[in-house]
Design a protein around this nucleic acid. Structure first.
Length: 848
RNA sequence: GCUCGGAUGGCGGAACCGGUAGACGCACAGGACUUAAAAUCCUGUGGGCAUUAGCCCGUGAGGGUUCAAGUCCCUCUCCGAGUACCA
C-alpha cells in the first residue's frame, strides 16, 4: 500500500499557509541568503513540467539554508505584461487585467500544489500600478541622466554643462536630449502589419515562424543608451560566478573590438569615415563601400549612376534582415560613380554601396581591403575591383592574393609606405600602432574601440505595457512626469486592436491622450508607446526586498542587508535569458548603482541555468507533438514530493534530459520505502523504530549521508544527494531495528527535497514543531572514516587482486601482503619487479 | 562558418586532483511470501570466452603522454545550444 500522499500534502500545505511558516524574517542579525527564481510570465496554459525544475532546485536550497541558520529570501512574482495576453484580449474581449488575474491565480494554485516555500507576502506583479510606478520612476531616472565619460558613470541631467554657443531654449533642449540616456530616434524597426506592432529582432523569427509577415520601416522610437555602459558591462563580468557559456555569450553580444577610424576624402569633398580593425592594411584599401542607408550615398553618387543606386536602395530596404544576411547568396552592390582618395597611398579609389556593409555597425562605411578580408575579397573578385597585397605571411612569400585573402594577424606589412610613414617590414601589431600614430598626427583618424552592442529599442506600440511617463506640448517641447505624478496609470480601454497608424491602442483613448497639463496649464498629449516586457524584469529582484514601500522602490538599509556583498546569492533560470534579460537588468542595476540606490555593481552573483526537460520521445515538449507532461497529472498520481524528487533525480540540473514517466516509480518507491521504514500503514510510529545504538556500518552510512546530502545541495548536485538517501533507506530497510536517532536525522536530510512527507514523518517521530524550523543535522567526521578498506593490487597496471586491509597501512606492509597473494604471485611469476607504484589507501602497482 | 557544451550498459545517469568504470534508479530475470495475482522483501544483471575461484574486451573513432586515461594532449565523426557579412 502506498503512503497517502494526497492527504499528507494537502494537510501540510494548509498548515504552512495558516502558520505563515515561510514568512521571511525582517531581523538582520542572522546571515542572509537570497535565492531567486526567474519569475514566470503567467500564460494561459499554466505551469509546464519545466517550471518546477528550477523552482524545486531553489526550494531545496532555501529550505536547506534555513535549516543552516540563514535568513532566507525566496520570493515569487509574475512578469505579467506581454503580447500573448494582449492578443488574447483582442480576440476574446476579456480585459488583460482579468485575464492576467485568472492566469496568476492558476499559477499560484499550481505552485502551492508543489509545496514551494515562497513568502507570498512579498509577491509582486509587474502589471500592478504600485509596481510599475517604480518601473516608470526608473525610466525617468534614466531619462534624466547623462553619461559622464570622465567619471565613467551616470549623472543627473541637471549637472550637464551646456555649451555657451547654444542660445535658444530649443537648441538647449535639443542638446540635452542628445545626451539623455533615454531618447527618441527615428529608426528602422521590424514592423508587423498583422500584429500592428513593432517587434524586437529576437522576436521576429518567433512571429515569422507563426506565419506573420515582418518588414522594415523607420518609426519614432524610444531608445535607451545602454551602449554607454558597454565597457562596464563587459569588464564587470569578472565579478560574477556565471556559467562560462553565458559570460561568453554576453561578451560576444557586447562585441568589443579594437581598431581605428580613418577619414577618406571623397572628390565631392565629403568626408567618409570608416571603422577598421586592421588600420595596418590601409595601403591595400582599393575601394570604399557604404551601407545603402548611409547618409552620404546621395551626395557621392554621380548623375548617371543615380537611377541604379536608387533601385538598389529600394530593393535593400524591402529585404528583411534575415534575407540581407543570408551568407549563402552572392554579394551584391552598385558603383556610385564617385571616387575618394586613399589617405595613405594617395590612390584614387571607387566608392560603392553594398548591403554586406551594415548601417548599424561602426560608421556604416568600410574601407575595402580585398587582399586581407574575405568578404572584401569575394566582392572584389565578383566586381573585378583591384586586389593589392600589403601583408605577407610570416614564413613564406608565395601567397596568391588573387585566390584568397590573407587574414592572419601574424604577418608582416609590405608595399605600405609613403613619404611620411613606412609600415613595410613591420609585424602586424607594430604596423597597427605605427599607422594609428601617423593618422592621429595628421588628424585624419584615430584609434577607436568599437562595440557590437546597440542601443536598446525601448518602446512598443502596444497597450499591455507600462505607459512611458512623458507628455508633449503643442510647441514641440515635452515634459517628464515628476515623482509625485507617478504612477501614470494605464487607462481602461474597450478595444485592444492597435490604432493601425503604427500607434498603440492608447492613441484611440482620446480623453487620456489629450489633456490640459495641471502643472503648466498647457495643452498636452501623452506618449502612446509603452515599455517592452523586459522593463519590469530589470529590477524586480529589488522590489522583493521591500515590496510594499510607497516612498521608494526599496529601502536602502534593507537593500544593503539582502544584496551585500555581491548581490543575489543564487539566481536560477533558463539559458534563453542568457543575453537580453540579464544584460538589461545589469544595465539598470548599474545606473542605480551610479546614484547610490544599490550597493553592488552587479545584481546577480551566482547564476545557474536549469537544463530543458524533453518529452519521452527525446524531443522538445510541445502541444503539436503531443508529448507534453502536465504537472497536475503527476501530482495526482504520485504526489508533489515524488514530482519534486523525480525532477531532481532525472540528472544534473544543468543537463538537457528526457522525461520518462516510467522512471518516476523509482523515487515513488523510495518515498514509500522511507515511509515504511518509520511509520505503519495507519500512520503511527513503526514498532521497529527504537532507541538503539548503531552498528559501525550504520554509523558510517548515516554520517556519510548527512555529509553527502549537505555537500551536494551546496553544489546543486541533487541527483547524487537523492541517490545517497536511497542508499540510506536500503541499508536500514535490511535491519529489523531502526534506530530512532538515525531515523530523525534522515527525515531532516529528506525534508528539503520532499517537505510534505518529511513533515508527516517528523510529527510521527514525536515532534510538534514544523521540520522547517529544525537545524540540519551535523555529521561526525570520525564516523565517516573507514577503518578497513579494499585495497587494489595491480601487476603491470592490471588489477590482479583486491585485499581487505586496515586504513593507512604503510607501503612495506602492503607490499608484503600483496606479494603473499596467490593471484599476484601467479602474474609476477618469477619476473623481476622493476618498479613499485604505491598510492596510499588506494592501490599498489608492481611493474615487471 | 564561428563560439560554447556534450557523447559512458537495454534506458536515465555515477565516478574527487589521472588511481577498483557503470553508484543510485528504471527495465529485465530468478527466488521468498501467497491457493493465485498484485504489493512487499531478497538475489542477479556491460560484452565475450570459460561456465569453478579463470581470462580477454569495454566510456563516439583514431593516435599520443603515463606505472595507470571516461578523466590530460592531438586529429576526426556525430549531437545540442548560441550567433550570424560586426569590417
Amino acid at each position: 500500500m502506498a503512503y497517502s500522499f494526497s492527504e499528507i500534502e494537502a494537510k501540510w500545505q494548509s498548515y504552512w499557509l495558516q502558520n505563515e511558516v515561510y514568512k521571511t524574517g525582517e531581523s538582520t542579525d542572522k546571515p542572509k541568503f537570497y535565492v531567486l527564481d526567474m519569475f514566470p510570465y503567467p500564460s494561459g496554459a499554466g505551469l509546464h513540467i519545466g517550471h518546477p525544475e528550477g523552482y524545486t532546485a531553489t526550494d531545496i536550497i532555501s529550505r536547506f539554508k534555513r535549516m543552516k541558520g540563514f535568513n532566507v529570501l525566496h520570493p515569487m512574482g509574475f512578469d505579467a505584461f506581454g503580447l500573448p495576453t494582449e492578443r488574447y484580449s483582442m480576440t476574446t474581449g476579456i480585459h488583460p487585467i482579468d485575464a492576467t488575474k485568472a492566469n496568476v491565480d492558476n499559477f499560484k494554485r499550481q505552485l502551492n500544489l508543489l509545496g514551494f516555500s515562497y513568502d507570498w507576502s512579498r509577491e509582486i506583479n509587474t502589471t500592478e500600478p504600485n509596481y510599475y510606478k517604480w518601473t516608470q520612476w526608473m525610466f525617468l531616472m534614466i531619462y534624466n541622466s547623462w553619461y559622464d565619460d570622465h567619471a565613467a558613470k551616470s549623472r543627473p541631467i541637471s549637472e550637464l554643462q551646456i555649451p555657451e554657443n547654444l542660445k535658444s531654449q530649443k537648441e538647449i533642449d535639443d542638446y540635452i536630449d542628445s545626451k539623455r540616456l533615454a531618447f527618441i530616434d527615428m529608426i528602422p524597426v521590424n514592423w508587423c502589419e498583422a500584429l500592428g506592432t513593432v517587434l524586437a529582432n529576437e522576436e521576429v523569427d518567433e512571429w515569422k515562424g507563426k506565419g506573420y509577415t515582418v518588414e522594415k520601416k523607420p518609426m519614432r522610437q524610444w531608445m535607451l543608451r545602454i551602449t554607454t555602459y558597454a565597457e562596464r558591462l563587459l569588464n564587470d563580468l569578472d565579478l560574477v560566478e556565471w556559467p562560462n557559456s553565458t559570460r561568453d555569450m554576453q561578451m560576444n553580444w557586447i562585441g568589443r573590438s579594437e581598431g581605428a577610424e580613418i577619414e577618406f576624402k571623397a572628390e565631392t569633398n565629403d568626408t567618409i569615415t570608416v571603422f577598421t580593425t586592421r588600420p595596418d592594411t590601409v595601403f591595400g584599401a582599393t575601394y570604399l563601400v557604404l551601407a545603402p542607408e548611409h547618409s552620404l550615398v546621395s551626395k557621392v553618387t554621380t548623375d548617371e549612376q543615380k537611377s541604379k543606386i536608387q533601385e538598389y536602395i529600394d530593393v535593400s530596404v524591402l529585404k528583411s534582415d534575415i534575407e540581407r544576411q543570408d551568407l549563402t547568396k552572392k554579394k551584391t552592390g552598385v558603383f556610385t560613380g564617385g571616387y575618394a582618395i586613399n589617405p595613405a597611398s594617395g590612390e584614387r579609389i571607387e566608392i560603392w554601396i553594398a548591403d554586406y556593409v551594415l548601417a548599424q555597425y561602426g560608421t556604416g562605411a568600410i574601407m575595402a581591403v580585398p587582399g586581407h578580408d574575405e568578404r572584401d575579397h569575394e566582392f572584389a573578385v565578383q566586381m573585378k575591383l583591384p586586389i593589392k597585397m600589403v601583408v605577407k605571411p610570416k614564413d613564406s612569400d608565395d601567397w596568391d592574393i588573387m585566390t584568397s585573402a590573407f587574414t592572419e594577424k601574424n604577418g608582416f606589412s609590405v608595399n605600405s609606405e609613403n613619404s611620411e610613414v613606412k609600415l613595410s617590414g613591420l609585424p602586424t601589431t607594430e604596423a597597427i600602432s605605427t599607422i594609428i600614430t601617423w593618422l592621429e598626427s595628421k588628424n585624419i583618424g584615430k584609434g577607436k574601440i568599437q562595440y557590437k552592442l546597440r542601443d536598446w529599442l525601448f518602446s512598443r506600440q502596444r497597450y499591455w505595457g507600462e505607459p512611458i511617463p512623458i507628455m508633449f506640448f503643442e510647441d514641440g517641447s515635452k515634459r517628464a512626469l515628476e515623482n509625485d505624478e507617478l504612477p501614470l496609470i494605464l487607462p481602461d480601454v474597450e478595444h485592444f486592436k492597435p490604432a493601425g497608424t503604427g500607434e498603440s491602442p492608447l492613441a484611440n483613448v482620446e480623453k487620456w491622450v489629450n489633456f490640459i497639463d495641471k502643472k503648466t496649464g498647457k495643452k498636452a498629449k501623452f506618449e502612446t508607446n509603452t515599455m517592452p516586457q523586459w522593463a519590469g524584469s530589470c529590477w524586480y529582484y529589488l522590489r522583493y526586498i521591500d515590496p510594499h514601500n510607497d516612498d521608494i522602490f526599496c529601502d536602502s538599509d534593507k537593500e544593503r542587508y539582502w544584496m551585500s556583498p555581491s548581490g543575489v546569492d543564487l539566481y536560477v533560470g533558463g539559458a534563453e535569458h542568457a543575453v537580453l534579460h540579464l544584460l538589461y537588468a545589469r544595465f539598470w542595476h548599474k545606473v542605480l548603482y551610479d546614484y547610490g540606490y544599490v550597493s553592488t555593481p552587479e545584481p546577480f552573483k551566482k547564476l545557474f541555468h536549469q537544463g530543458l526537460i524533453l518529452g519521452e520521445d527525446g524531443e522538445k515538449m510541445s502541444k503539436s507533438r503531443g508529448n507534453v507532461v502536465n504537472p497536475d497529472d503527476i501530482v495526482k498520481e504520485y504526489g508533489a514530493d515524488s514530482l519534486r524528487l523525480y525532477e531532481m533525480f532525472l540528472g544534473p540540473l544543468e543537463a538537457v534530459k528526457p522525461w520518462q514517466t516510467n522512471n518516476i516509480t523509482g523515487v515513488f518507491n523510495f518515498l514509500n520505502r522511507a515511509w515504511r521504514m518509520i511509520a505503519t500503514d495507519e500512520g503511527t510510529l513503526s514498532p521497529k523504530v527504537l532507541n538503539a545504538g548503531l552498528s559501525p556500518e550504520q554509523d558510517y552510512v548515516l554520517n556519510y549521508t548527512i555529509k553527502k546530502v549537505a555537500d551536494d545541495i551546496e553544489n546543486l548536485s541533487f541527483n547524487t544527494a537523492i541517490a545517497q538517501m536511497m542508499i540510506f533507506v536500503n541499508e536500514f530497510t535490511k535491519v529489523e531495528v531502526k534506530p530512532l536517532d538515525a531515523m530523525k536525522k534522515f527525515v531532516l536530510c529528506l525534508s528539503p527535497f520532499a517537505p510534505h512527507i518529511a513533515e508527516e514523518l517528523w510529527q510521527i517521530l514525536g515532534h510538534s514543531q514544523s521540520v522547517v524550523f529544525e537545524e540540519f543535522p551535523v555529521y561526525d567526521d570520525a564516523k565517516i572514516v573507514r577503518n578497513e578498506i579494499e585495497f587494489v593490487v595491480q601487476v603491470g597496471g592490471k588489477i590482479r587482486a583486491r585485499i581487505q586491509v586496515n586504513v593507512d597501512l604503510p607501503q612495506d606492509q602492503l607490499e608484503a601482503l600483496a606479494l603473499g597473494d596467490a593471484a599476484v604471485q601467479k602474474h609476477i611469476d618469477g619476473k623481476e619487479i622493476r618498479k613499485i607504484i604505491f598510492v596510499k589507501n588506494k592501490l599498489i602497482n608492481f611493474i615487471v
